[in-house]
Structure formats: structure tokens, C-alpha cells
């Protein structure tokens, strides 16, 4: 378990910790996920839309993207395409509130590192993050 000292040092050393970006139009998710991610030892930043993320200056530092599928404006899969077009290589974990198994299959086929159905447990999140980071390393 991380000590208080560890945690504060992690927060200070934002630049050294792997950055996980959360893109979701839902406020509950944006409010809660960064907290847990920090507890898990990541730097975390939340974005309310794909556009917001695309204008993020430190985008290139992002090690992993937790990406909602259905969003107003640019959807999750559309953002994925845009990133490929811009040659931004970042592993993506899709998160969706639609519980349809065929959706997961399609997303995985299109190169997602993982796909989580909301609501998901801490363990599911950690497993997905591990897979995503491995995914990045293997590329």
C-alpha cells in the first residue's frame, strides 16, 4: 500500500508518472475515475469531450486512454480513428454503458486494448490498465 509520502510524491512528480486520460461526457465518471487512478499510482486527467482531448497540449505524454463510446459530437471510435490519422499511438480502453457483447467484439477488432462495461470493479480496471500498458510496450 502506498504511504502518504508516496502519494504526495506521486502527485508532485506528475511528469514522471504514467499519464492516463479519461474522456467521458458523463460527470460521475469524470469525477470518480481520476481519484481511483491516482490511488493506483497513475497521473490522471479528465476531459468532457473528444475535442477537449484533441486540444490537450500534453497529448503525446498520454500513456493510456480511457474512452467512452457514446458521446455527443465526436464519438469514442471516431476519436480513435482521428488519433490513428494523426499518428498518435496510445492504447485505448473503451468504457461503455451499453451492455451489448457484440459492441465489445467490434471495438476489440478495431484495435482497442480492452473494453469495460460500466459499472466496472477496481480489479477489472487494473487488469485492463495492465493489458493496455503491455499493449503499448509491445507495439
Amino acid at each position: 500500500m502506498a504511504t502518504r509520502a508516496d502519494r504526495s510524491s506521486r502527485r508532485q512528480a506528475l511528469t514522471t508518472q504514467p499519464l492516463v486520460a479519461v474522456v467521458d461526457d458523463d460527470e460521475s465518471v469524470r469525477e470518480s475515475l481520476p481519484g481511483l487512478l491516482q490511488e493506483l499510482g497513475f497521473a490522471a486527467k479528465a476531459f468532457a469531450s473528444a475535442d477537449e482531448f484533441l486540444s490537450f497540449k500534453d497529448m503525446s505524454r498520454t500513456q493510456c486512454l480511457l474512452l467512452d463510446v457514446c458521446m455527443p459530437g465526436i464519438s469514442g471510435p471516431e476519436l480513435q480513428q482521428e488519433l490513428v490519422a494523426r499518428a498518435v499511438r496510445v492504447p485505448i480502453i473503451f468504457i461503455t454503458a451499453r451492455t451489448d457483447a457484440s459492441v465489445r467484439e467490434r471495438l476489440m477488432q478495431r484495435g482497442a486494448a480492452a473494453c469495460l462495461f460500466k459499472p466496472f470493479s477496481e480489479l477489472q480496471l487494473r487488469t485492463a490498465l495492465d493489458a493496455a500498458l503491455l499493449h503499448r510496450d509491445s507495439r
Partner: peptide, 26 residues
Amino acid sequence: AHELNQPLTGILTNCATCLRMLTSDS
């Protein structure tokens, strides 16, 4: 399901965070 899954995600995630914070050494 869609409408409810959003806040449920928040609840579950917040609880996990909270648990971690409370059960940490400090």
C-alpha cells in the same frame, strides 16, 4: 440500464477509491 450505469460507475469507482484511502497505512 444505460442511464443507471453511469452513476453506478461513479459509485463503484468512488467506493473503491475511498476504500483504498481508508485502508492505507496512512
